[in-house]
Amino acid sequence: MNLIEIDNLSVTFDTSDRVVRAVQGVSLSVARRESYGLVGESGSGKSTILRAICGLAPISGGTIRINGKPVPTPRGRAFSAQVQMVFQDPYASLHPRHTIDRTLSEPLAIHGLGNTDARVVKALTDVGLPPAFRFRFPHQLSGGQRQRVAIARALMLEPEILLLDEPTSALDASVQAETLNLLNRLRAERGLTFLMVSHDLAVIDHMCDRVLVMQHGRAVEELTREALAGAKMTTDYARTLFEASADRMLG
């Protein structure tokens, strides 16, 4: 059985002036311990899929199952112990006036987990940050360090699934490399399952076993890593994305 099963998902935003069909009939499934990518141009609905899984976007059709069970509404504690999200901009996703210590201990308090000090220190060490960083505020960290804190926070409840929304697109190439290496190490060590959004096909290729190419809220084509590397795509749109991929210009 697949750990994540999305069947015919549609998300429609009904705003005061217009109706936005952000996701239209998208199906995908992700096996346990697999890393699955979503790529596509801006506005194609990638983030909306992750947000719908977390209950942050209105589902107008279709089903989402985690481990065979339809996700409950509201998502609740059991869901957040199983599924966590990491956002693109770690500065916006960390509370500016909370110390790192408070940010990392909060999920423990909500879930009634003890041994807070030891868990916070271990969480920082696991993402390669010195334990003394717990007394800092987000603005006292670099962008890469903030993203490490966001990853540490997502892992506090030891989830099985990480939803990663462009986790490195705000970082320079070197810090991106360090962050991707960290994510790959954590996935291997903990047997995590990733559903990861990126606009960068080379990042997806490095991180993911399969990728779904999206356009205008629809699934265009699913590719294995081998098909992507071998340029075996069958749709014009996936080929266009591939040919435009920045890493191909680098030779």
């Binding site: 070197s174 991180m207 590397a229």
Partner: peptide, 22 residues
Amino acid sequence: QGLLNCLPRIGGSRQPLPSLDR
């Protein structure tokens, strides 16, 4: 050169990416 080296490539290796020794 170092920054370019850190970028993943389609079809590239899955080994950890190099990062900069600043």
